[in-house]
């Protein structure tokens, strides 16, 4: 059995903040990035795995283009970046537009880790909106769906058959949020027919989070060491001069 370490959410947060700070210095909101990884990891949605995949390659290299379509929808070309690194920026666009105009749609093309968008769905709902998002599955006729209504604690996640009438690009990630649930229902959600065998109910996500809070998170020692290595990038070499700048 692989060696593991149990750490609290707060310790994990501090480690991730430093890891992101080491990666991006102050060019990004590393507190928010850390929160996102925690949100995913506490729900057993592979936040650490995605971070380590992203930080080690093109997934973290900043290369985003934003266009606003005539329809008012946003279109982000991610050029291979991990959605983990810019999910909250996409979500900011969605929330901002939905709060100002009632509804918003954000399309994301060419993103690594598209499933991260589930966290955006939850964040939209924490902001008083209803939201759903879908992204491609390996099976081309099927999409993954995360959906949450205002008032629900966590999103539900499932696989869905795409409707024949679906006119969007199947390979894109799409996030839709609306002030009124009825707008979301009438425009999008009725399109999907659910495939129940892969269903993750919102209360399951909620209970995994509570378990993480109670017992801490168990990480493989290898992942932990890699995270520590990333976090160590923020440390400055100790010198005699630096010791003069230290307190007790």
């Amino acid at each position: 059995m692989a060696e593991t370490i149990t750490i609290s959410i707060n310790e994990f947060r501090a480690l991730l903040r430093k890891a992101f700070e080491g990666l991006y210095v102050h060019e990004q909101d590393y507190n928010q990035l850390a929160r996102l990884v925690i949100w995913l990891e506490c729900r057993k949605l592979s936040g650490i795995k995605m971070f380590l995949e992203a930080e080690d390659g093109p997934g973290s290299r900043w290369d985003l283009n934003l266009n606003e379509l005539d329809s008012g929808e946003y279109f982000i070309e991610a050029n291979g970046m991990s959605l983990l690194c810019f999910n909250d920026l996409a979500c900011d666009l969605a929330i901002g537009r939905a709060k100002n105009s009632g509804m918003s749609i954000v399309h994301i093309s060419g993103a690594m880790h598209p499933e991260v968008i589930a966290a955006s769905v939850a964040r939209c709902v924490r902001n008083g909106l209803s939201a759903c998002a879908w992204w491609p599955d390996e099976d081309v006729e099927v999409a993954n769906l995360a959906s949450q209504e205002a008032g629900q604690a966590e999103p539900m996640m499932c696989r869905v058959d795409l409707p024949k009438s679906y006119g969007g690009h199947i390979e894109n990630v799409t996030l839709v949020c609306a002030e009124k649930l009825s707008d979301l229902e009438s425009k999008y959600r009725h399109w999907f027919s659910y495939k129940d065998e892969d269903y993750i109910a919102s209360d399951m996500l909620s209970s995994t989070f509570t378990q993480s809070l109670d017992n801490g998170l168990t990480l493989s020692m290898e992942s932990y060491k890699r995270l520590c290595h990333c976090a160590d990038r923020v440390l400055v070499e100790a010198t005699e001069a630096s010791r003069r700048g230290a307190g007790a």
């Binding site: 400055v236 070499e237 100790a238 630096s242 700048g245 230290a246």
Partner: peptide, 26 residues
């Protein structure tokens, strides 16, 4: 303000002469 590699101890540096400003805390 920065964190030293010695136990992550917070320390103060002088930008005009000390190393580490590129890793300063926000």
């Amino acid at each position: 303000w920065y964190r030293s590699e010695e136990k992550m101890e917070p320390r103060l540096g002088q930008r005009s002469k000390d190393i580490g400003a590129e890793k300063e805390m926000l």
